[in-house]
């Protein structure tokens, strides 16, 4: 099978035109300058939209499989607590930068979302949980937000007489930024929630504990 695959690949032409020229020709219409971001959010918006749906679906399945497992609560060490306090704001800053810079240089919603998720993981590892205040409606809204904003933007375009997910050139840059910002938040939160591995239960007491730690 490996030999067959290798043969098939080697039979491919050594140089293919690819789609980079098409993308480069149409980049002016997309509202951003980074070709990859243009493809992700604009030209192949459907893929990204459905991909957000896949993430959401994975989270739904995980949540429906039961509530968050009880972990052995290990008291986080001094170093971890200190580093978390140092790194989390930095990571959030980096995520924001990646999101903003995605329009012109490598970066974008997925990268920013995963950096945000990394910050979230650090918080989780040092004992933070979705507190009672945040585990209800607001969590759900943020998680669904990325997909919802995407769909709403697409539908708004339809109302304006365009086609689904076809942005007018004048607003494309701003629209992409809004969509990406919502997507970033959703992706980050979904990944953290997937790491927790279960529906956060509001009645769990440890939810409030880490907040006092953060203030310390």
């Amino acid at each position: 099978m490996g030999a067959g695959l290798a043969y098939a690949v080697l039979k491919l032409p050594a140089e293919a035109p690819g789609l980079s020229k098409t993308v480069a020709d149409n980049i002016d219409m997309s509202g951003v300058d980074n070709p990859v971001t243009a493809v992700v959010v604009n030209f192949r918006g459907y893929d990204t939209l459905l991909e957000m749906a896949v993430l959401l679906l994975a989270l739904l399945v995980v949540w429906s499989l039961g509530s968050e497992p009880q972990r052995r609560e290990l008291a986080p060490g001094e170093v971890l607590v200190y580093l978390t306090g140092l790194l989390v704001p930095l990571l959030i800053l980096v995520a924001g930068y990646l999101l903003w810079v995605g329009a012109v240089a490598p970066g974008g919603a997925f990268q920013a979302g995963s950096v945000l998720a990394a910050a979230g993981l650090l918080l989780v590892l040092s004992g933070w949980r979705f507190g009672a205040r945040f585990s209800g409606l607001s969590l759900r809204i943020t998680v669904v937000g990325g997909l919802a904003v995407f769909v709403l933007a697409g539908l708004a375009m339809m109302l304006h007489g365009g086609r689904f997910l076809e942005y007018p050139i004048a607003y494309a840059g701003a629209l992409i930024l809004v969509i990406e910002a919502a997507a970033t938040l959703s992706i980050g939160l979904i990944l953290v929630a997937l790491f927790l591995g279960g529906r956060p239960s509001p009645d769990q007491s440890p939810g409030s504990r880490p907040e006092s730690r953060a203030e310390k």
Binding site: G18, A24, V36
Partner: peptide
């Protein structure tokens, strides 16, 4: 990367 200029972004 088989393109002549920048790699295919798709």
């Amino acid at each position: 990367t088989r393109t002549q200029s920048t790699p295919d972004p798709v």
